[in-house]
Design a protein around this nucleic acid. Structure first.
Length: 347
DNA sequence: CAACCGTGGCG
DNA sequence: TCGCCAAGGTT
């Protein structure tokens, strides 16, 4: 059997990961959300910190959204953290704090789609659900020579059916872990290790030298460019932050006062913009320096970011009523996007 | 459905 | 340098 070969491979090659030593649905849930589009090595530290601070669903539900976001700082895709928090509150309110044990109810939780619901159902409750993630798409497409696009609705159906068939009577929690781990370690996206692969004889891609053509994916859309001018407005002990709103990147996170432009602007022109002038009316300032543009790449946007540091005397700091004046020591309490965090670490 | 949503690493 | 990829989900 094909699946028993994969399971056998797994027993000899699996990594010892923290969320594999438990069947606690809460712990598995946290790990699965963190692992979405994120590599294992990145997740491990975040996972430990998160579980330490919020050991149970109730602890998470009672935390503030800002505290939860703070634990997510640097991990990316921050809606995952907000959804996690909402779902925890929902479980406390509707299920008395007990994680639901049916696939349908798991799937209803915010931030949980078909993959994650299947993974939790299988890992925590032993339910017979094939979890199909990027690893599984890759393994199945190569193994069986499926050229359908893995990110199209049609392709997803095909691969789900294939995965369901391949699982057959295997233990769901072992089978799912096995094929995912197999994709992560052996049947990798780049330079798969076909030489010592136990599935060589049955693998379409290996037999036809098509490893690099599979899986197939729809191309990504073009990136848009945005130009951010961040003002690090500071006195001896304080600096200014503002909270981002909804409907854009980094929702609810904190950033410096921002001037956004459609194109690149020189500092000499920037200080004549309306925003700049309205900002510093009646305030004595000293422009300290301007950092060279750095391009911060998001999944769909290139952010061209420049930081301009502006020194202001202590008494003038409270004239900026629309911003939050923060003690330099307390920046750690605010969830910051990566570029802001990095800037503060240097400043 | 297609666009949107972070960040780090690799070849 | 740069495009792609990594245990996807929501609107």
């Amino acid at each position: 059997m094909l699946n028993s070969k994969i399971i056998n491979w797994y027993e000899f090659n699996k990594r010892d990961l923290p969320w594999r030593n438990t069947t606690n649905p809460y712990n598995i849930w946290i790990s699965e959300i963190m692992l979405q589009q994120t590599q294992v090595v990145t997740v491990i530290d975040y996972y430990h910190r998160f579980i330490n601070s919020f050991p149970t669903i109730k602890d998470l539900a009672l935390a503030s959204e800002q505290d939860v976001l703070n634990h997510w700082q640097g991990l990316g895709y921050y809606s995952r953290a907000r959804n996690l928090h909402q779902a925890a509150k929902f479980i406390v309110d509707n299920y008395n704090g007990v994680f639901p044990n049916s696939f349908d109810n798991i799937l209803k939780l915010k931030g949980i789609g078909v993959y994650t619901a299947s993974a939790i159902a299988a890992f925590a409750f032993g339910l017979s659900k094939a979890a199909v993630d990027g690893n599984v798409y890759r393994v199945l497409s190569r193994l069986f020579g499926v050229y359908e696009l893995t990110n199209s609705p049609k392709g997803k159906k095909t691969f789900q059916l294939l995965a369901d068939e391949l699982m057959a009577n295997a233990e769901p929690h072992i089978y799912n872990q096995a094929i995912i781990e197999f994709g992560a370690l052996q049947c990798t996206a780049k330079k798969p290790m076909c030489e010592d692969c136990p599935l060589q004889a049955q693998c379409f891609a290996y037999l036809n030298k098509e490893q690099n053509s599979l899986p197939t994916k729809k191309k990504k859309i073009k990136l848009t460019n945005r130009y951010f001018y961040y003002l690090y407005i500071f006195s001896e002990e304080h600096f200014l932050l503002q909270q981002r709103g909804d409907g854009d990147i980094w929702r609810k996170m904190f950033e410096f006062p921002l001037i956004e432009a459609n194109n690149r602007i020189e500092l000499v022109d920037l200080i004549h913009t309306e925003t700049w002038r309205s900002l510093f009316v009646d305030v004595k300032i000293e422009v300290k320096d301007q950092l060279a543009t750095k391009v911060h790449k998001l999944s769909h946007q290139n952010l061209h970011i420049e930081f301009i540091s502006v020194k202001v005397d202590r008494d003038s700091m409270n004239k900026f009523s629309s911003f939050i004046c923060i003690d330099k020591e307390k920046a750690i309490n605010f969830p910051l996007p990566k570029p802001i965090e990095s800037y503060l670490a240097r400043a």
